[in-house]
Amino acid sequence: MNVVLWIIAILLGGAFVAAGLMKMLQPKEKLIETGLGWTEGFSPNAIKAIGALDFLAGLGLILPALFGIAEILVPLAAVGIVLLMIGAVVVHGRRRETPMVIANLVLLVLAAVVAWGRFGPYSF
Rank of each mutant, 00 (worst) to 15 (best):
I8D: 07
G51M: 10
I62S: 14
G41V: 11
G37R: 04
A88G: 13
V74L: 01
G93K: 11
S123K: 14
L66P: 00
G58Q: 01
G37I: 05
M1Y: 11
A103T: 08
F119I: 10
I8F: 10
L84E: 05
Q26C: 07
G13T: 07
G117P: 09
I32F: 02
E40Y: 09
A46W: 10
A111E: 02
L61K: 05
Y122K: 06
A57V: 11
L21V: 11
V90W: 14
S123I: 03
I69N: 08
Y122I: 09
V91A: 09
L56V: 11
A52I: 13
L11V: 11
D54G: 02
T39M: 03
P27Y: 00
I47Y: 01
A18W: 08
L31I: 04
A78P: 03
T39K: 13
D54Q: 09
G58Y: 09
G93L: 08
G35A: 12
L105R: 05
M24F: 01
L31Y: 04
G37P: 05
A46Y: 10
E40G: 12
L53Y: 14
I81D: 05
A103E: 04
G60Y: 04
V109P: 08
R118M: 02
P64G: 12
L84P: 02
N104K: 00
L21Y: 12
L107P: 00
P27A: 02
E29P: 03
V101Y: 04
A70K: 08
Q26H: 10
L59N: 13
G117S: 12
G117N: 02
V91F: 04
M100Q: 07
K48Q: 09
R96I: 06
V17D: 00
